[in-house]
Design a protein around this nucleic acid. Structure first.
Lengths: 348, 348
DNA sequence: TTGTAGGCGTTATCAA
DNA sequence: TTGATAACGCCTACAA
């Protein structure tokens, strides 16, 4: 950054004042400027390979053109998809995206909140790592626009984009029930997260509607990671296995498959497994995983669009807290057909 | 950003001058400052929830504390791993990482180069999307520190961290040969990339050492993506299949597996498949993929450390262009054992 | 149509 | 031990 070319160098080279250069830079030359003057400036800019200093510019303009995404775990394909959705919209609107991976740590999340505030971001898309974090409200106090994505937090006054997780849990369970499964286990996500709670609630509703029950030892709580799913399934192996297991996301479902296979069971012949998210990995799993597609990419796009709307909205205009619920879709794995016959047999 | 709290507000509240506040902020209070003064300032900062404006700070300090990573495809797990390695080191040294996903597009790469220059990054870790890009040299002309990672570019005068891809290609091929495979096909990566060239060269060397040959129709070039691997394998299906196929990365290997299975072949019973990278997905594939581990995370760490060394080095000190070559490791899939017998049978 | 000058929030030099 | 003040590079009234 030392010895950088400034607007002053350009002005000298072009033989004009710095204001003239600035006007060319900001496209305010159209109306009142001699074409030859503009030409000289453009020429000087090219010769010196000048590019404006964003820091000086932001300081003056009082607007950074940066938005932050605070996510709990970028290595989870679901969130990287969501992120791509955000970037797609941001790129088109000339916003820079600052990605912050909290790695499921509250401490890191807080450090990033501080960084985003120092960065003076124009807005933040927040995917919470935990049930609550008081620090997040600093954004609101500072007037930073905030949009929540994927995970609902009731106590924070911000608009949000979420999926219909309750329905997701319901239709997936209903699907398995239709296939003939009666004893279904569930690997929960962290129950302080709305997605985990809703998916489980949907599960319970579908089960309850048929007057069925679930054994306590067939319900485990894990942390949405591959390893967590692996461990939860392994714990279930201690007792009598259910006929099928629903994991609250695909990563855990795949972990569960691994655990079961490592213990000599084959999926889906011996036991059925299903998940949520429909991450790309789910399509690769063999056999194809039964799952509920949560539109991550779209969620990212919608969240960014909602954020833009808020940023550009008239501050005076009193809006109500907008909530957008995205629809979900059942993805039937080929496992299903194979299983149904198997299960029916074992039930005879 | 409007109505933000500034150092001036803090000074007024604490009843001191802005210079005093600045000193507290920068930890220069240790030596010569009354503890009670410092205390008053700290108190005011807390009461006002003040946080320094990074833009003003950078403008003054002439140093951003930001480094850029320019990568060809973040959705490839290999690069997201590498990125995590970079972030790990950056975080510890209080650097912010600006991630730029060129999505294998030269146009996007160039747009990001411009953005990184405007951002006045202190350094850039560059993973090239193509064989050459003149624009990259702008970094050097601007005095931005540059480190290349993963992919060698001979014509750019910058230090680099790469893997021993030649050896990787060699030991993987040697392994398959030891298992008894004789007709081995190869799905190349983009041959303008050093990794693709080296891995293929290593393959040829191992083949040549045994006096064997490879049929032309058993060599295809693809683009390092899942879909590319799928298509390349499908093309091979038109002729006589080899006994095994090596794909220049895991993503393509998994694509190839998919293609073969979609066409009624089973892996590894009918044909062996191997790849490079050892991405997390490789461990999940069933059966476990034979691959060569390229230490992506470590590569990211090393690249960032090399960058830091360059940034902090005395500018006058004339260094030579450092090149670090990371070692690779063969990962034997369970496929191997199964295959060897099968293949021997078919060779009788 | 172009130029002058003040100020954005901070740091750092010099004086007190 | 503290305070006043001049930059840092850019934008934008206001003047010319």
């Amino acid at each position: 950054m030392r010895g950088q070319v400034t607007i002053k160098d350009v002005a000298e080279r072009a033989g004009v004042s710095i204001s003239t250069v600035s006007r060319v830079l900001n496209g305010k030359s159209k109306d009142h400027m001699r074409p030859e003057t503009e030409e000289r400036v453009l020429q000087a800019i090219k010769e010196l390979d000048y590019s404006p200093n964003r820091y000086a510019r932001v300081l003056k303009r009082q607007r950074t053109g940066v938005i932050g995404v605070l996510a709990p775990d970028i290595s989870n394909p679901f969130f990287s998809q969501l992120l791509r959705g955000v970037e797609n919209v941001a790129y088109r609107h000339d916003y820079l995206v600052l990605t912050c991976d909290a790695e499921n740590s509250l401490e890191k999340e807080n450090r990033y909140i501080e960084i985003l505030i120092e960065e003076r971001v124009d807005g933040v898309i927040y995917i919470s790592s935990a049930s609550q974090n008081e620090e997040v409200e600093r954004f609101l106090r500072k007037g930073v626009h905030l949009v929540m994505a994927d995970r609902r937090l009731e106590n924070i006054e911000a608009p949000m984009v979420v999926a219909n997780d309750l329905k997701a849990g319901y239709i997936l369970t209903e699907h398995l029930l239709e296939l003939g499964y009666r004893e279904i286990g569930f690997i929960q996500g962290p129950m302080d997260l709305s997605t985990a709670r809703d998916r489980f609630q949907g599960f319970l509703q579908a089960i309850g509607k048929r007057g069925l029950e679930v054994r306590k030892e067939h319900i485990k709580e894990a942390d949405y990671t591959f390893e967590g799913g692996y461990r939860a399934a392994q714990e279930m192996l201690n007792g009598k296995l259910p006929q099928a297991i629903i994991a609250a996301n695909d990563l855990m479902a795949i972990g569960a498959i691994r655990a079961l296979e490592d213990n000599g069971f084959s999926v889906p012949q011996d036991i059925g497994i299903a998940g949520f998210d429909n991450i790309p990995l789910a399509a690769l799993a063999k056999p194809r995983l039964t799952t509920v597609a949560i539109p991550a990419y779209k969620m990212g796009q919608e969240a960014m669009e909602m954020l833009l709307k808020n940023i550009n909205a008239n501050a005076g205009e009193n809006r109500q807290r907008e909530v957008k619920v995205l629809e979900v879709e059942l993805i039937k794995g080929i496992s299903a057909d194979v299983q149904s016959s198997k299960v029916h047999q074992s039930m005879v």
